[in-house]
Design a protein around this nucleic acid. Structure first.
Lengths: 134, 134
DNA sequence: GGATACTCTTGTAATCATTACAAAATTATA
DNA sequence: TATAATTTTGTAATGATTACAAGAGTATCC
């Protein structure tokens, strides 16, 4: 599956690439480069962090993945699914996906702009952490 | 003005702080720390970059300013105005503000979440750069 | 007003993520 | 199989941010 998906996007389906993409698809985890590397190196002992960076850059250019940087300069990666936003809990740092119809929102002022990508990020406290506080 | 605004937010209105906040209000420029430092050091020759970082951190905690990190890990700062999004041009890198009624969008899934902050970022090409391309 | 305590600023050094680069390994091509 | 092209790897370089301690400034109390 992943194999063909890469081919379809003009990316040679090399072993590492398949593994990285599978990882992103499996754990819909919004992982950092470090997390990806640390998990995959167990399976691919010769993997280097530079390769993870290279691979992700490639995927980014092909629009297979997206960057998430809500704040903090912790750059995370996400497989590219339309119409969803990210909520980050300030307490437990967890990132939650939610669906949002951002295309349904009028932005008159941008009528002359060519919009290629829309991102929505919320911050706050998740239900679990809200409960703990009481 | 700026002076009292700081006092009202429980921040001692020290000279540097007033200057940094004035800068952010004047140039609604979404500047980086470097830009702020390089411009202000002309007026405040003893200014240090660490002070700029400290001051911005303080403002952030007091919710006077906001972080913008659309991608790239170029962290920019913005005075906190509700209901506006940011558009970044991929060609000229300029960041444009636009108004967007994000509170008008339903997010059923987050009904149990306490939302403190909402951010909307778009990417694409601005009218000026679109013209140049033809 | 002056002494003391407290806070802020400064500069240097440390840290950490990311990138550059060149050599080694792998894959594709003939 | 030999050759060319691409990818991976590891180390070193870069650059933004933070830690920290000393110096400067500010507030408080007598």
């Amino acid at each position: 599956m992943v194999h063909e998906y890469l081919v379809k996007n003009n990316i040679k389906p090399l072993y590492n690439r398949v593994k990285v993409l599978e990882y992103l698809l499996d754990k819909q985890n919004h992982p950092t480069v470090d997390e990806i590397y640390n998990d995959l190196v167990k399976e691919l002992p010769t993997l280097s962090k530079t390769t993870v960076y290279n691979t992700l850059k490639l995927f980014l250019q092909a629009n297979l993945v997206r960057l998430i940087t809500i704040e903090d300069n912790e750059t995370r990666y996400d497989v590219n699914i339309p119409n969803h936003g990210h909520f980050k809990c300030e307490e437990c740092k967890e990132i939650y996906d939610f669906t949002i119809d951002i295309d349904g929102v009028e932005t008159e002022e941008l009528s002359q702009f060519k919009i290629k990508e829309k991102s929505v990020y919320y911050k706050g406290i998740c239900p679990g952490c809200l409960n703990k506080k009481n």
